[in-house]
């Protein structure tokens, strides 16, 4: 399942809902991305996430599908927020559930690496010294490329 939303999410409730009624699940991995108050040597007051409605959902669904094909997953969930966020706020949640932990761990890392380079989101950071668009990092491409067949 994928969700793109402005509202915050409750990780415990999401895990419970995702695993409910499926006793074949033996392990659940969740990753929660948070907004930091520092970017390089800049202090950040707010971060605003813009996205491409329609294409975002399409790409997230495809990334999840790819993970389902590559690993033995019983359930998975991606939630990505957009709009204005503050340091400490949750931005992104990936949950992977499988019979054995290795599939859940690997698939979760894959989801995060791929969504960073394939989902159309853009971050704008605002601090006391003004605001700017966050630039993509080469290290993100490197992280995503290690999952290439």
């Amino acid at each position: 399942m994928i969700r793109v939303q402005q509202e915050d999410f409750d990780v415990g409730a999401e895990i419970k809902a995702l695993t409910k009624g499926n006793p074949s699940i033996g392990g659940v991995v969740s990753f929660i991305g948070l907004v930091r108050d520092i970017a390089g040597d800049r202090s950040i007051d707010t971060m605003t996430l813009e996205h491409y409605p329609g294409m975002t959902e399409k790409m997230l669904a495809r990334i999840e599908e790819e993970a389902q094909e590559r690993w033995n997953l019983d359930a998975s969930l991606i939630i990505h927020r957009y709009g204005p966020l503050n340091p400490g706020d949750q931005i992104v949640l990936t949950i992977t559930a499988s019979a054995h932990r290795q599939d859940a761990f690997e698939a979760n890392e894959f989801l995060m690496d791929w969504l960073k380079t394939k989902a159309p989101f853009w971050k704008r950071e605002a601090g006391a010294d003004g605001d700017n668009w966050v630039e993509a990092k080469d290290s993100d491409d490197v992280a995503a490329a290690r999952w290439s067949p």
Binding site: I91, L115, K116, K123, V134
Partner: peptide, 28 residues
């Protein structure tokens, strides 16, 4: 049409073309 494309791809038949910088979602 909401699929990544290249600069030399043809635009014939396109209903929606979007331009944007490299994406920066997820978490750093």
């Amino acid at each position: 049409n909401q699929e990544f494309a290249e600069l030399d791809d043809p635009i014939a038949g396109a209903a929606e073309i979007a331009f944007f910088p490299p994406v920066t979602g997820g978490q750093t």
